[in-house]
Design a protein around this nucleic acid. Sequence first.
DNA 1: CCTCCCATGTTGACACTGTCAATTTATGGT
DNA 2: ACCATAAATTGACAGTGTCAACATGGGAGG
Lengths: 202, 202
Amino acid sequence: MARPRASADDVKLRERLLLAAEELLRTTPFEELSLREVARRAGVSHAAPYNHFPSKDHLILALAQRAAHLLDQAMHEAMAAAPDNPADQLVASGVGYVLFARRHPALFDIIFHHEPPEGCGPLEEMDPAFQRLLRAVTNLGARPPTDAQGILSDAVFAWVHVHGLAVMFIHGTLNRVPFDEVALAREHCRRLLQVLAPQLAT
Amino acid sequence: MARPRASADDVKLRERLLLAAEELLRTTPFEELSLREVARRAGVSHAAPYNHFPSKDHLILALAQRAAHLLDQAMHEAMAAAPDNPADQLVASGVGYVLFARRHPALFDIIFHHEPPEGCGPLEEMDPAFQRLLRAVTNLGARPPTDAQGILSDAVFAWVHVHGLAVMFIHGTLNRVPFDEVALAREHCRRLLQVLAPQLAT
DNA sequence: CCTCCCATGTTGACACTGTCAATTTATGGT
DNA sequence: ACCATAAATTGACAGTGTCAACATGGGAGG
C-alpha cells in the first residue's frame, strides 16, 4: 500500500527544490545553476535532491517543463490583453514571447538550452505554446484551413523569427542597434504579420 | 628591449592553446570546454594557460573572435559560389550563416554565448559579417541608398530571422518539423527576400 | 664568458561542482 | 512494540577554475 506520508513529503521536498531553483534562476544565469546551492536554499544537505531527481539534468528538465508552461501563460495573457482580432492577436503572441524571454532570461534559456537527459523527445513541452501560435496563424485566414502544410510553414516562420529576437535580446547581441526593445519587437511582429497575411497589414 | 624569443614562444603556446581548444570544440559542446583539457591537449600543465590568458573567459573571448571570423568567411564563400545578382547573394549569405552554425555548433555558440569578461563592447567581432549583410541588403535596391535607417532595419530583420533559424537548428528545436534543414533554410531565406525586396522575388 | 634577471612553465593547494556508497533517521504497517 | 523501508545525512571521489610559491632556462649587461 502506498504510504501517504512518504508521497506527501516526497512532493513537498521535490516542490521545494523546484521552487528554490526557480528563485535562484531569478538572479543567476542558467549556466551557473548549482544543485548544491539549490539544496542549500531548500534547507537540505547536498545529496538530498538525488532522492527526487536521478541527476541534475532531470531537475533541469522538470524546470524546463514548468518554464515552458509559464511562457505559454505569458503568451496567453498578452493575447488576452490585446484587441480581439486575428492580426492583433498574432502580434500580441509574438511580443508576449519575446517579453517573457526578456523578463525571465534564465527560465527562457532553460527551456531550449537543456540537454534532454534520455530519450524524451525534443521540446514536447513547447507544444502548448506552439499550438497557440498555430491557432493564431490559422485565424489570420491567409490560407484555407485545409492547407495544414502551409499553415505549419507560416507558424514555423513566425516562431523562428520571434525566437531569434528573444535570444538576441537575452544575449545582448542587439544592444548596439539604436532601437528600443519592445518597440523593435512590435515592429518585427507587425512586419511578420505583413508577410503572413498582407491583407490584414496596417 | 623586447625579447624576440619571449614573444615568439609566447605566440607559439598561445596559438597552440587556441588550436587545441578549436580542435576540442569540434567534438565537445561549448559548455563542456575545460581549460585543463585544453592545456592537456597542448601538452602543458594545467596552469600554463594563465601565462597567456588571465582567465578562461579571456581564452573563450579569443576563440569567439576567431569563430566570428570563420563565420564571416563562410558567408563570403557561400556568396561567392552563388549567382552574382543581389537576390541570390542575399539568400546565399543567409544560408551560409545557418549552415555554418549547423556544421560548427560549438564555434557558433561561442560567438554569442560567451560572457564578455570585462568591458569589451558586445559583439564587435560580428561587425564584418553584419557589414557584409548590410551590403547585401543595400544591393537589393529596395530602398534608396540614402535611407540608412530603413536599410539597417531590413538587415536587422534578416539577421534576427536567420539567427533564430541557426539556434533552433543547433538545439534541435525544429527536429519535429518534417522539413529538411537546408531546404528549410533556403525557403526561409527566399521568403525573407520576398519581404525585403518583393520586386526581386521569384 | 660569466652572471643575473625575469618571463615562462610546473607543482601543489583551495574551494567549488556533480555523483555515488554507506550510514543514520524516522515513520507507517503489522 | 517492532520492523521494514523511504528519505536524508555524511563522507568520499574525480573533476573543475584559479591562485601562490617554486623551478628553469635563455637573453641582456658586464
